[in-house]
Design a protein around this nucleic acid. Structure first.
Lengths: 243, 243
DNA sequence: TAAGTCTCATTTATATTATAAAAAGCGCCA
DNA sequence: TGGCGCTTTTTATAATATAAATGAGACTTA
């Protein structure tokens, strides 16, 4: 949902404003006419943007009652656009922990399946992901992109459409997660070894081992985040500089 | 996305046609003017419907090139609307297996978390789900609804927004799953006992046990589906009446 | 002949205006 | 006081005009 044209641009801006909490019960969405003025757009373009956000669970429009932001539990958080908007402007350690928690369940499941059903092409993609991570370690590839490529390859290799669907979600989450936790400083080597254990298990068809290796990998990431947060809390208490 | 008004009705119809494979590379979506005629709608209403489907990953429209169905891997399968459309018209054992597979990873994860963090209200909802299942067994409640209520309560009790987001998905999937596998014929009692084990573990705060109990529960459902499918395959081979 | 450029036609994108439908709020009346 | 019906506001739909994008084919030129 890039700003390739006016409608998409409005959807983007409005989407960000909504998920960052600009509108609520006491500060509702302006009526169509005002929104048109605000974005300098016609009703057609604006209404189409609003309909896109409605489809993603962010808005609800009814005649005479106006257009309202839906309660947060109706937002389609698994939609990469929605998740992206949320992450782009609103840093939240809680959110980071929450999606690492769900990755802790999902990715081992995908790895287990992948070990059972992955074909030659899918296995090649996983192997290639590991190679890219190794290349990144030598400075020949991007560490973030290669990491994401590996996790996406595993999800795809599960040959399950719902896991495959989570690639967009995972890629967005991972990009944000890694950027904010900002690893790649010495942890890299150990991390590659852990990733390689997962890959080896999948390639060898050892389903249980693959799941377990993936679980450990993500559990480590979760522990790291929690430790960091605790640390920052301590610093805040001590009056130190924490973000 | 009910047919509350014209635009939503068009989105529904078109959505079903798309996911059931009416349109493809060799049979592309008609141009706007033709679609308007087909649905007896104005361009405004039609375009708004198309934009909703675009937001859900089903369509992509560009000037001069027309509007095309996106490749299936871009469909937002975790969106309850999209999943519902897929299930409503297109029975698919493969799909049933696939979403039971992902439930096998997700729901134990949610149960584990729930055991750690569920508050009084969330615990009450889980207890109530069990009570409803028991009531259904006596004929005093709906077996399908009570089953769904229990699983939804566990997801919510995880206090994780991404798990909570999957309630819509799970409810849709479960409704379809149970209807087609059509249990509730003697299996019921054993099923309630298994559900109660999950609930007890969560209520007692035994996280690992809760996850494991949930895993067993869903693994049983998965085995049942696979056995059924194998059975039907056998019948088909034997020339018997399948489905 | 071949490669590049230009023009034109087609289709979606946006704008504008008018009318319909829904529903909240108010006032009238019994 | 309570219910009924008008009025007004806001979204829903319609109809039409213009803009922008782009694919295809013609045209130009080396």
């Amino acid at each position: 949902m890039q700003g390739q044209n006016l409608t998409y641009g409005i959807a983007n801006e409005l989407g960000i404003e909504i998920v960052t909490g600009v509108y609520s019960a006491d500060n509702p969405i302006p009526i169509e006419a005002q929104l048109c003025r605000k974005y300098g757009a016609s009703r057609s373009a604006l209404r189409e943007a609003v309909k896109m956000l409605t489809a993603k669970g962010l808005l609800d429009a009814r005649p005479r009652r106006g257009t309202w932001v839906q309660p947060e539990e109706k937002w389609n958080l698994l939609d990469p656009d929605v998740l992206g908007w949320l992450l782009e402007r609103k840093y939240s350690p809680a959110l980071l922990i929450e999606f690492t928690e769900i990755r802790l369940a999902v990715e081992p499941g995908a790895a287990t399946l992948a070990a059972r059903v992955a074909g030659p092409q899918e296995k090649a993609a996983i192997r290639h992901g590991i190679e890219r991570m190794q290349a990144a370690d030598r400075g020949d590839d991007d560490p973030l992109d290669s990491d994401i490529a590996f996790h996406v390859a595993v999800l795809r290799a599960s040959r399950n459409r719902f896991y495959a669907q989570l690639t967009g979600f995972t890629a967005t989450a991972l990009r944000f997660s890694i950027q904010t936790t900002n690893r790649y400083k010495g942890v890299q080597l150990a991390s590659i070894a852990d990733h390689k254990k997962v890959a080896d298990a999948i390639l060898a068809g050892r389903a249980v081992a693959a799941g377990e290796a993936m679980r450990k990998l993500i559990q480590e990431a979760l522990d790291l985040i929690c430790k960091r947060e605790a640390l920052q809390a301590t610093r805040r208490l001590a009056g130190g500089s924490a973000r």
